[in-house]
Design a protein around this nucleic acid. Structure first.
Length: 467
RNA sequence: GGAGGGAUGGCCGAGCGGACGAAGGCGGCGGUCUUGAAAACCGCUGGGCGAAACGCCCCGGGGGUUCGAAUCCCUCUCCCUCCGCCA
C-alpha cells in the first residue's frame, strides 16, 4: 500500500551518520526486491483510537503527536477515492476501445482515445500526489515506536525500572576487587593497547587463556541453547542490506549506531536480532510451524557513538563483541507467554554458571523503539559496585513483522496475519567475562577460578592454570 | 571483475500491446462413484487496499512509452552458465 518514492537518484546511499532526510533510506530500498510494506503501526488502529494510542506512545516520548498523521491519512483516502474512480473509467474505456477496434469501428475508437487522454493525465497527476502523501505517511509512521504493553511500568527514566526477581545473593567479597581490565592485563588474558593498534579504542583483543575463555563462553551458550528443545541453530550472514536493517527497525532512526560499508550498501550487524528478523521476511508461515525458535551466534558491531567514561571501561561497552541470540516468531496469542519462557531460557544459562543476577522490567521510556515489553538480565560487577545488563529480552509484537511483511495463516483458508517477533540475548560474552573475572578472582595469587560449568570448555580450573 | 541466459500463482510452465489476475499440468482441498482405497469425473484452490462493490492495485523491484503493458523501453536486484580472481 505504501509505495516507495524512489527520489531523483535511486542509487544514492543514505549519507552515513548525517542524520539526513528520512526519505533517503526509503529511496535506497527501492531497488531491492521488495514489496511495498505495511506501516509499522496499524493505521487503521490509530484511526479508531487516536487518543488512546497517542497517550500510550507519549509514555515513551512525550513529544509524539499523531495529529499530522491523521491529516495525511485523510488526504490519502480522499485521493484514493478520486483516482480509483478515474481508473475505473479508464478500465472501462479500454475495454470499449478494444471492442470498437475489433469490430472495425476505427473512427469511434479514435474519438474515445482522444477523450481518454485528459483522464490519463489526470490519473498521472493524482497518482504522483498520492505517492507523495503515502511517502510522507510512511516516513512519519516508520519513526514512531511500538505501543507499549499494559504491564510495562510507565516512566521516562532508567530508574523507573522494576526488579522482578533475582537468583542467589549478591556476592560479598572480603577484599577490594580488582577491575577486570587490570586483572585481564595482569594475567595476560586481554591486550587492549594492541587491539587499539590494530583497530582502535573499544575493540577487544583476547590472548591465550583469555581467548580460550571467550571461546568457551561462546560454545557453552551455543551448546546450551542448541540442546534445548525447539531452538534451531543458525549462523547467519554478519552483514545486512538496508531492507534488513529497516525490518528490525535499525533504520532509519538508528543509523548512527551501526557500521556501514558504503560502497556495497551493507551494514555490519549490531546484534543477530537484526539478521534473524529478516529470515522469514516476505513469507507467509503456516500456523502449525509457529512458534519458530532460533538460536544464532554472531559477532556484533556497534559504533557506540558518544559512549565513554569510567562506567564503561574495559569489556563493558565495545565496538565488537560476541553474542548468542535467541529469536522467536510466534502467533499474537502466545507472544507474551513466549516472552516469559524466553527470559527463563536466558536465565537458565546464568543459573547453569551459578552466577547471581536479577531480572528487571524496563519502563516505557527506556525500551528500544521496536519493543512492546522488555526484560533485562543484569549481573553484578564488583569493581563498579553496580549491575550491568547481559541480556535484553523483548517482545516486539507485530512491529518488526509489519516492517518486514512477515505473516502467518491462522487457519488454512484464513487471511494472513502478522506474526509477533521476540528476541533475547542468550548471552553476550564481554560483560559476563567481566563478571566472571571479577567475581571469581582469588586475592592470594591474583588468579581467577573458572566456574564449574565452563571447565570442560576452557580445559582449565584456574586461569592461568599451573603448567 | 568480464561475457551470456533467466525471474510469471504452492511447484512446473504458456503467454501476437486490447477478451489476461493470467492457458495447461502437478500438488492441495471438497464432492460423485466405491464395502474401503486407488483410478476416473466435477468443483474450488495467490496476495494487498477497502465497511463493501459486478471497485482499485499486484506477473522480481522502481521508472517510462501508450487511450490501454505480463507483453515495448530504461534501470536496479537476485539466480544460473562460462572466463578471471580469491579463502
Amino acid at each position: 500500500m505504501v509505495r516507495r518514492n524512489r527520489g531523483p537518484k535511486p542509487n544514492r546511499f543514505p549519507p552515513f551518520g548525517s542524520g539526513g532526510a528520512d526519505g533517503d533510506d526509503i529511496a535506497v530500498m527501492a531497488h531491492y526486491n521488495i514489496k511495498p510494506r505495511s506501516p509499522m503501526l496499524d493505521l487503521k488502529r490509530i484511526r479508531e483510537d487516536p487518543e488512546g494510542i497517542e497517550r500510550r506512545l507519549k509514555t515513551r516520548d512525550p513529544k509524539i503527536t499523531l495529529k499530522p498523521l491523521l491529516e495525511l491519512d485523510e488526504r490519502r483516502r480522499a485521493l484514493i477515492r478520486r483516482v480509483e474512480a478515474l481508473k475505473h473509467e479508464r478500465n472501462e474505456a479500454s475495454q470499449q476501445i478494444a471492442r470498437l477496434k475489433r469490430e472495425g469501428r476505427e473512427d469511434e475508437a479514435q474519438k474515445r482515445i482522444q477523450a481518454m487522454r485528459a483522464i490519463a493525465d489526470e490519473i498521472k497527476r493524482l497518482d504522483a500526489e498520492l505517492r507523495a502523501v503515502e511517502q510522507k505517511i510512511h516516513d512519519v509512521l516508520s519513526g514512531l515506536p511500538n505501543v507499549p504493553h499494559e504491564s510495562v511500568p510507565v516512566g521516562l527514566s532508567k530508574d523507573d525500572k522494576v526488579v522482578v526477581r533475582q537468583y542467589k545473593e549478591k556476592p560479598e567479597l572480603d577484599f577490594r576487587p580488582k577491575h577486570h581490565l587490570d586483572l585481564g592485563h595482569e594475567l595476560g588474558l586481554l591486550d587492549f593497547p594492541r587491539a587499539a593498534k590494530i583497530a582502535g579504542a573499544r575493540f577487544p583483543l583476547y590472548v591465550g587463556w583469555g581467548a580460550r575463555l571467550e571461546m568457551a563462553l561462546i560454545q557453552f551458550f551455543w551448546d546450551f541453547h542448541c540442546t534445548r528443545t525447539g531452538y534451531v541453530p543458525v549462523l547467519p550472514p554478519y552483514l545486512g542490506n538496508p531492507e534488513t536493517m529497516f525490518t528490525a527497525a535499525q533504520l532509519p532512526k538508528f543509523k548512527d549506531d551501526v557500521y556501514c560499508i558504503e560502497r556495497d550498501e551493507l551494514y555490519l550487524n549490531p546484534t543477530a536480532e537484526t539478521l534473524v528478523c529478516s529470515l522469514h521476511r516476505d513469507e507467509i508461515l503456516s500456523a502449525e510451524e509457529l512458534p519458530k525458535r532460533y538460536v544464532a551466534y554472531t559477532t556484533c558491531f556497534r559504533r557506540e557513538a558518544g559512549a565513554a567514561g569510567e562506567e564503561e571501561r574495559g569489556l563493558i561497552r565495545m565496538h565488537q563483541f560476541n553474542k548468542v541470540e535467541l529469536f522467536k516468531f510466534t502467533t499474537p496469542e502466545t507472544s507474551f507467554d513466549e516472552l516469559e519462557s524466553l527470559v527463563q531460557d536466558a536465565e537458565a544459562v546464568l543459573q547453569a554458571l551459578d552466577i547471581h543476577y536479577r531480572v528487571v522490567l524496563l519502563p516505557t521510556g527506556d525500551m528500544a523503539a521496536q519493543s512492546a515489553k522488555t526484560y533485562d538480565l543484569e549481573v553484578w560487577i564488583p569493581s563498579r559496585s553496580r549491575y550491568y545488563e547481559v541480556s535484553s529480552c523483548s517482545n516486539c509484537t507485530d512491529y518488526q513483522a509489519r516492517r518486514g511483511n512477515i505473516r502467518y495463516r491462522p487457519a488454512p483458508k484464513a487471511k494472513p496475519e502478522y506474526v509477533h517477533t521476540l528476541n533475547g540475548s542468550g548471552l553476550a560474552t564481554p560483560r559476563l567475562m567481566a563478571c566472571i573475572l571479577e567475581t571469581f578472582q582469588r586475592p592470594k595469587d591474583g588468579r581467577v577460578v573458572v566456574p564449574e560449568a565452563l571447565r570442560d570448555y576452557v580445559k582449565a580450573d584456574v586461569l592461568p592454570p599451573d603448567r
